[in-house]
Design a protein around this nucleic acid. Structure first.
Length: 551
RNA sequence: GCGCCAGUAGCUCAGCCGGAUAGAGCAACUGCCUUCUAAGCAGUAGGCCGGGGGUUCGAUUCCUCCCUGGCGCGCCA
């Protein structure tokens, strides 16, 4: 980050001096191959198209000015069409060590998000059964994204929307009630649509214990009792599962409360005012086709019940009215068809299109010994998130979920995730941290103290290739976090960590720390390792993964 | 039929707001444990970046058409 910012500022000054225009297209990044230098930039982009055909002269001019501008730049190579390969001095990189150690747990953070108020909604699974592995992926992505965005300077609020109104909920109440009747050996007429899972029987049993007199009440009231108990009990389970997975929501937002509070009617009025709603066949419709959807959508059905869409519009309207600048929803990819109508709603509510974004999370294929495991809730046959966590642990599961971008399907092989090998990069990264801790313990045993702030002449001893590589990588954490936040792509963090861990392992094998030829060198290296451990911890913490001291 | 997502090394995947010789892990092969944890390291080999066309000085990246796979297309949520 420091390197990138430095170079960017220098380039801006020079471009300004030359009377040219800075272009957002000017990307400063690590070169594809380390032998090219520390950073690469293409300055040809500030030129007109015509001039870009011969960018060499300009590149030379920039090179000359950069050398004069920044004493930390020790090497500039002109390559390719307008490429400058920049090399920073060792001293520049060595300063990363005190920087990281000075910032400690906050190293990696930046002001990139400028305090933008973001509402991040994730999981929001219907309380009709326990969370399964697919919900787990959404949970891991949502929670990690929240951590990453906060670290990048966004003001993030996280929510779980509880769909405790509507048809599926009536179905839950009925399902429990029918199981209850079955338990009481009463005749049962099974409908086509009901929840068959074993947990429904458990719930029915609980209701029976708590309400022994339930059969003496009117059936409607009994179903209500079943529903109330079922929702609360299942939500308690969901909260517990998420807590075990280290997934946090700051707020649990009830759809029922939204409807009861009149928010839906208020949203309807807004749509009416903008002229997008109409009545037809006894139902209230929203003309989403005028806003890019392929069909108009029903808001209130002819039977008087609200659609899910209706209360969802009200919910999003409520989010805006609470003052959020950006709404991000994490959805399962099977809901992607829902996006156009939600965008239509955002538009009709008079909000900017960019203020609403969706992170689509593709399916998880749960595998056991290479064979798929079914996860249908209604068929009552699924591997719950809780079961998976019990089997592989939260660390391995969270890292696995962060090992792919969200919109590609993920095979989650239980046997693989349990494996303690490089098939399973979480151990690779954690092991790097544990190795540093082992050295630190050994140092303490030998009476070698972890140095405080290293003097410049001590830092200057850190000149091995692997040492400089570690410093360059550490310097990249803040921009990696900022990029991951801006792109809503939290998986970048796990790739970064794997790279940093690789550099550490490489260093560990090549260079002796405690057995270094000189005491001062050993001490300097301990200082470096303390910084690397800090960086690993900070990165792992963004993923919600622990950084063990021994393994 | 329409829409969304994907197609990159034998396998699992990064990269994609256009830029250098396309990267990583696994699997394969060769080496490295009397030295701080071998859950590791060093190295070799492995690619019409699904296919055709287009835009461009330059395309894995953008546009378009095809092919293949997944997922959606309710007065369900």
């Amino acid at each position: 980050m420091r390197a990138k910012k430095n170079l960017e500022n220098a380039l801006k000054a020079i471009i300004n001096e030359l009377g040219l225009n800075w272009s957002e297209k000017i990307v400063i990044e690590p070169p594809k191959d380390k032998k090219f230098g520390d950073l690469a930039v293409n300055v040809a982009l500030v030129l007109s198209k015509e001039a870009q055909k011969n960018p060499r002269a300009l590149a030379e001019l920039f090179a000359e000015k950069l050398r004069a501008h920044d004493a930390d730049i020790t090497g500039i190579e002109i390559a390719g069409p307008g490429f400058l390969n920049i090399r920073y001095s060792n001293a520049f990189w060595q300063n990363t060590v005190p920087l990281v150690r000075g910032q400690g747990a906050s190293f990696g953070s930046s002001a990139h998000g400028a305090g933008l108020k973001v509402l991040l909604e994730y999981v929001s699974a219907n309380p009709t059964g326990p969370l399964h592995i697919g919900h787990g992926r959404g949970a891991a992505i949502g929670d990690t994204l929240a951590r990453v965005m906060r670290c990048a300077g966004y003001n993030v609020h996280t929510e779980y929307y509880i769909n405790d109104a509507g048809r599926q909920m009536r179905l839950l109440g009925t399902s429990i009630w029918l199981r209850l009747k079955e338990l009481a050996k009463k005749p049962v007429d099974w409908p086509e649509d009901w929840y068959r899972g074993e947990y429904i029987i458990d719930l029915a049993q609980d209701v029976m214990t708590r309400h022994p007199d339930i059969f003496s009440k009117p059936e409607e009231e009994s179903v209500d009792i079943c529903f109330e108990y079922g929702v609360n009990s299942i939500m308690d389970g969901i909260r517990q599962d998420l807590a075990d997975f280290r997934v946090e929501h700051q707020q649990w937002f009830s759809e029922k409360s939204l409807v009861a509070g009149g928010a839906v009617e208020a949203a309807f009025k807004r749509l009416q005012a903008s002229g997008y709603s109409f009545e037809q066949d006894g139902a209230l419709w929203f003309r989403t086709t005028e806003l890019g959807d392929d069909k108009d959508r029903v808001l209130r059905k002819s039977d008087g019940y609200l659609t899910y869409f209706a209360s969802d519009i009200a919910y999003h309207n409520d989010k805006y009215e609470r003052g959020f600048d950006l709404l991000i929803d994490v959805w399962g990819a099977d809901h992607h068809g829902y996006i156009p109508r939600m965008r239509a709603a955002v538009n009709a509510l008079g909000r900017k299109a960019e203020s609403f974004d969706v992170v689509l999370v593709q399916l998880v294929n749960l595998l056991k010994e290479g064979k798929p495991v079914s996860m249908s809730t209604r068929a009552g046959q699924f591997e719950t998130l809780a079961d998976v966590l019990k089997e592989v642990g939260a660390d391995a599961a969270r890292f696995m979920f962060m090992s792919r971008k969200s919109d590609s399907p993920l095979d989650f092989d239980l046997d693989l995730v349990k494996q303690r090998s490089m098939d399973n990069p979480v151990y690779y990264v954690q092991y790097a941290h544990a190795r540093i801790c082992a050295i630190q313990r050994k140092a303490a045993d030998q009476g070698i103290a972890l140095p405080g702030e290293l003097a410049p002449e001590d830092l200057a001893l850190l000149v091995e290739d692997q040492e400089l590589e570690l410093m360059r990588l550490m310097d990249r954490l803040p921009e990696t976090v900022a990029n991951a936040a801006a792109a809503l792509a939290p998986h970048h963090i796990s790739y970064y960590l794997t790279e940093l861990a690789g550099a550490l392992h490489s260093y560990y094998s090549a260079v002796q720390v405690l057995n270094a030829p000189e005491k001062r060198l050993a001490s300097a290296r301990l200082g470096l390792l303390a910084a690397v451990a800090q960086t690993l911890r900070n990165g792992l913490d963004l993923l919600g993964v622990s950084a063990p001291e021994t393994m």
